[in-house]
């Protein structure tokens, strides 16, 4: 009887605490799973409901990618965040009630007992959607070792950002790319070491041919500037180098369009060496 009452009370408390948006419509929990495609002799079967990201690099590296949410996924994540906050707030209420009860039993002034501060939703540290949808590749389990390293990962379709390699993130400026269903999106990635101490990332679209992959399924990645990202892991920060025709930097901020697009007038660019005129 007591157990049943407790359950009913808990259910009532829960219903009071869950935000209205969550109570009205609870979005379906998103399934999140990725799979390494390792170096095996047999052909890769492309699942038409999945995407594949292929990262090529001259050396063995450990790239980190993150999926960006679409509007529906962002809304679902926000509901999860609110629910998590409601749970935390409920715990706080219980803790305060317990402290007050203890004081009452001890015949002490409850206001003199030190109580934890009330959680504030604006400061609630809940992991971002990107943190919860992270893809770790390498440095082992390469798909190919020919001409460097190639890593292949099966992922849910969507838009992904390049976040880091090892313990250095591209937090000061990165790019995103689409990974459509049934396709292998190929990109080239290599960390650099500049004499002045910076370690920016060279990233670009890649071509990739391998008898184990259907040639028509492999696409070069098409990049979009994705701005700065939080240093979620407290690691070294750097950025992606400007990509011609995609973006450059002005005072640390990404500006759409590339170096050549700004520096080279259109008539000259179309008649001469496309590389000429770059700074």
């Amino acid at each position: 009887m007591i157990a049943r009452f407790t359950m009913v009370a808990a259910a009532a408390l829960l219903s009071m605490s869950v935000p209205a948006a969550a109570a009205e419509k609870a979005p379906k929990k998103e399934k999140w799973a990725t799979k390494v495609i390792a170096d095996k002799p047999r052909p890769v079967t492309i699942d038409p409901t999945k995407s594949y990201i292929l990262v090529r690099s001259p050396a063995q590296i450990a790239p980190v990618l993150m999926r960006l949410p679409n509007a529906e996924q962002a809304a679902a994540h926000e509901v999860e965040r609110q629910e998590a906050f409601a749970r935390v707030h409920r715990s706080w209420r219980k803790r305060v009630a317990s402290i007050e009860l203890d004081a009452k039993v001890a015949d002490a002034d409850p206001s003199k007992r030190r109580k934890p501060p009330e959680p504030v939703e604006a400061d609630f540290g809940y992991p971002s959607y990107e943190q919860k949808h992270t893809v770790f590749l390498g440095p082992q389990n390469r798909f190919s070792k020919v001409d460097g390293s190639a890593y292949l990962q099966e992922v849910p379709p969507g838009e992904y950002i390049f976040y880091a390699v090892g313990a250095t993130c591209a937090c000061l400026g990165t790019v995103s790319f689409d990974a459509p269903a049934g396709k292998v999106v190929a990109l080239e990635l290599s960390p650099t070491n500049n004499p002045e101490g910076t370690t920016p990332f060279q990233i670009g679209a890649a071509t990739f041919a391998d008898v184990r992959l259907p040639a028509e399924s492999v696409l070069p990645a098409a990049f979009k500037p994705a701005g700065m990202r939080s240093n979620w892991f407290g690691i070294a920060v750097d950025r992606v180098l400007p990509i011609e025709g995609v973006f450059t930097y002005e005072r640390g901020k990404q500006v759409a369009g590339g170096v050549a697009a700004i520096a080279v007038p259109a008539p000259e660019a179309s008649s001469g060496d496309p590389v000429a005129g770059q700074p």
């Binding site: 935390v88 707030h89 715990s91 706080w92 934890p116 501060p117 959680p119 400061d123 609630f124 540290g125 809940y126 992991p127 971002s128 943190q131 939080s230 240093n231 979620w232 892991f233 407290g234």
Partner: peptide
């Protein structure tokens, strides 16, 4: 930035 509160919570509840 935003994620650090998750890594180093500003109060017990995070």
């Amino acid at each position: 930035q935003s994620g650090i509160q998750y890594q180093q919570p500003p109060y017990p509840y995070a």
